[in-house]
Design a binder for these strands. Structure first.
Lengths: 228, 228
DNA sequence: TTTAAAATATGACAAATGTCAGGTTTAAAC
DNA sequence: GTTTAAACCTGACATTTGTCATATTTTAAA
């Protein structure tokens, strides 16, 4: 079994602030898991007794609204830790986490996390910094959601996918979302998303090949976001 | 000058996790300030060298969007600490804080906050819990913003004002927002807000007297939020 | 008090977005 | 390979929301 001490993923998250001893405990108690695309890591309302460190793949974090639609709050990938907020607040999960690309994940029981928080200020501050960052991002999403049009939000989403997940050698986005997931990210109806994507294609901003999407004119896409 | 050790406000926020010595330092370095309605405590982009503990009054935390509109992210009142996120993340302020009711505030230089964070795990965990709560609230706002209609969001806002700030002896909301501020909370045009408030009045859900607002039929308001 | 400015209000219309109903294409299961 | 289901697409239309123009009321300033 691989050891957390050697895990490169750790460098990207707050676990890097743990000392040797603490890491050993985590390593001894962690459980490796895999999830196929579409499988849930946890569901909204579920009691979590640990956190999930993403080693590979991508997960969508979403919440069901009263009208039955799923709002995707965030996409989490390699290095991110899921469930941390719930474990710290000692609440049940506020969001569901579902794999949108096959995932390798380490489950870490909450005891070692909570114990380290209470004894190692470096770790606590590191976690705090991460959460402060998440909070800023969430605030920014609120502003985008309420002040930008659907068209602008979809254009932003494509650029976000490019910046966060990259492109392959042919220039196609490494992560492409289904129209439905895209709709749930920007908070609109699937038909609206489809229509706008068609429009972007016609205007030569993006092109598609099967499920893959390529941004062919970044400048135009960006101009959609800023003005009109 | 009043001492933090005796400050009742402290019981409502993370400062309660400070020990005697730490509190003394805060008390010795804090600066009391007052802000009139409309005055800014800090502006988006500003470098903060401390946090602001609200002793009295109400502040709106907002962010300017590209189209020039202000989105209000949160209302902060007695007991809340402003600027904490920015100080912890060592970033400039992501939001502006402006008084919407005359305020008494204590400014606390960041040094004592950061020092305590790094040495007192109880305090760090307490701050972390608060931020975890803020993050959940922000996620919930994202869902509301993208999945509910303007009418539903305005109905929710009135109930939020009632629950968070209370009513006076005549049943009027203790905190009432201008139509413009209300628009910036729910993320819509001022005219839309005015129209919907007029409709609520006609339907007997709320009534007004000068600037004051009374919720006269809570059940009806709630039914607006849930169904249609 | 008078005056000016801001906040509130309403109508008319345009633009954005949602909904429903039917298609076609693509991917997956058998 | 055939079948079946899911994903994608498009049109027509209803609804929601934004914008502009203008009027009234309220508040603040002189």
């Amino acid at each position: 079994m691989s050891r957390c001490e050697n895990c490169i993923i750790r460098q990207f998250n707050s676990l890097r602030a743990m000392n040797k001893e603490e890491l050993k405990k985590v390593s001894d108690t962690k459980i490796s898991k895999t999830y196929k695309k579409g499988e849930a890591i946890f569901e909204e309302g579920e009691r979590l007794d640990g956190v999930f460190c993403v080693r590979e793949g991508v997960s969508k974090l979403s919440k069901l609204s009263a009208n039955g639609k799923d709002q995707i709050i965030k996409l989490a990938t390699k290095g991110e830790i899921l469930g941390q907020r719930s474990v710290i607040a000692e609440e049940s999960a506020n969001l569901s986490a579902v794999a949108i690309k096959d995932m390798d994940v380490c489950f870490i029981p909450k005891e070692s996390i909570l114990h380290t928080l209470n004894t190692n200020p470096n770790f606590a501050v590191e976690v705090l910094r991460h959460m402060a960052n998440d909070l800023r991002e969430a605030d920014d999403v609120i502003v985008n959601m309420s002040q930008k049009t659907v068209k602008q939000r979809i254009a932003e989403a494509f650029i976000y996918l490019k910046d966060s997940f990259g492109e392959d050698s042919d220039g196609f986005l490494k992560l492409s979302l289904s129209r439905e997931d895209m709709s749930n990210v920007v908070g609109t109806a699937t038909e609206s998303t489809i229509r706008i994507i068609s429009e972007f294609k016609k205007k030569g901003m993006i092109e598609t090949k099967g499920k893959k999407v390529k941004i062919s004119n970044l400048t135009k896409l960006q101009s959609v976001i800023s003005g009109l």
